[in-house]
């Protein structure tokens, strides 16, 4: 099973954090439905080229949050996500992505105004593209 998670190697953000945020987003957004069997720890580690230690940590964290559950001998599954949970986590990965974008802008000494301009033009362009796609 292929899970759309992307790792940013340029980031100093620990991998378990990067992967955790994206997996959480996939679950709360419903892209990974309740009851979905996730890849084994070794399998996902291989796919993302990271260590099993990292993936185990991600699975454990999400299990503690109640987003995943493990059935002994069968594997790790997506749990039922409440509506409240859903709205709480919905924007998390978006905020993360914006933070990374702002960091990139600060590296080249962008002003706040320039960032605003870029933001508006990107949003406009994207919305136009998606309207055309429909």
């Amino acid at each position: 099973m292929w899970i759309p998670i992307q790792i940013n190697e340029q980031s100093a953000e620990p991998l378990y954090h990067q992967i955790g945020i994206q997996l959480r987003a996939l679950i709360v957004s419903g892209q990974l439905e309740e009851g979905t069997l996730l890849p084994s720890i070794r399998e996902l580690a291989q796919h993302l080229k990271c260590s099993v230690i990292t993936i185990r940590r991600v699975y454990q964290n999400l299990e503690t949050e109640g987003l995943l559950f493990t059935r002994q001998g069968t594997g790790t599954f997506v749990a039922q996500v409440g509506a409240e949970e859903r709205s709480r986590h919905r924007l998390e990965s978006v905020v993360e992505a914006f933070e990374a974008a702002v960091a990139a802008a600060l590296r080249v000494q962008c002003t706040e105004e320039e960032m605003g301009d870029i933001y508006r033009s990107v949003v406009k362009e994207r919305l136009r593209q998606s309207r055309q796609g429909d």
Binding site: E9, S11, A12, P14, L15, Y16, C50, S51, I53, T54
Partner: peptide
């Protein structure tokens, strides 16, 4: 060293 920790901390 834990591999992922090593790579994410050396920059």
């Amino acid at each position: 060293y834990e591999k992922d920790e090593l790579f994410s901390s050396w920059h």
